[in-house]
Amino acid sequence: MRRLLKAAVLLVVSVAAPGTAYPQKATEQFIPVGQSPGVSGKLTWIGEIVGTDATQRTLTLDGAQGAHTAKITEKTRIFLDRSKLKQSNVTGTVADLQKGRRVEVKYEGPGPAPVADWVKVEITRP
């Protein structure tokens, strides 16, 4: 019985540990800024980039929801939203996080500088 319970607990851990709610990020790439259902405006900030800190790896934006700072990690996905140019959205890099650009940041976790799950950068000029 004890063995069964131990195995069950291990299985629960193995099932639950990777199993945090995990939205599929592949198609997220093609959703324009501000249109992510259930997320945009609720779990994201939308605004203009007002600063980046390369050493701290943070991004600060200012928008209707005020100024916010998020950490950029190697897991943060950066998408270039080119839908206003009627071009396909593509993945970007940290170099695309330029001051003055409009972005949407999906944040995760608590604290003054939560981690950015993804950042969509709106590209309006070719």
């Binding site: 199993g19 945090t20 709610a21 939205p23 990020k25 997220e28 992510s36 259902p37």
Partner: peptide
């Protein structure tokens, strides 16, 4: 599930908030 909704064959079929709605 305790971790949130699971959709599609691998449980991660929806973008955005991962819900059936999305």
């Amino acid at each position: 599930s305790p971790q949130g909704p699971r959709t599609g064959w691998s449980g991660d079929g929806a973008p955005a908030d991962g819900s059936l709605r999305a």
